[in-house]
Design a protein around this nucleic acid. Sequence first.
DNA 1: GGCTTGACCACGC
DNA 2: CGCGTGGCCAAGC
Length: 103
Amino acid sequence: MHPPGDDFVSRVLAVVDAIPAGQVMTYGDVAATIGSRAARAVGTVMARYGSEFTWWRVIRAGGHPPVCHEDQALSYYEHESTPLKWMPDGSYRVNLRLARYRP
DNA sequence: GGCTTGACCACGC
DNA sequence: CGCGTGGCCAAGC
């Protein structure tokens, strides 16, 4: 667990916690919301604490879910009716145009 | 204080 | 679309 506070980690987790079901934010979006440009640091936070939060609602700018978690993320998206788009090769992306959450 | 690591990003080709 | 390149910045050593 992570002790509540006003540090970077707590701010990131608070933003993630506020994303509604069926919508997503990019790592960069989350960083920008807390007045930072540290998208990579957001990724680091999710890697460490994400398992206790709705990690699948934070994705890359290209619509890709977090690396090595595409399969698990997909079941969440289908369950939440998150707008997806399917690629010719069978892979998928989240449709950011429709699913992006703007606080 | 410098250097490295990282669930990243924008842009050009 | 895919790949490289340079850039961003927090955290840990």
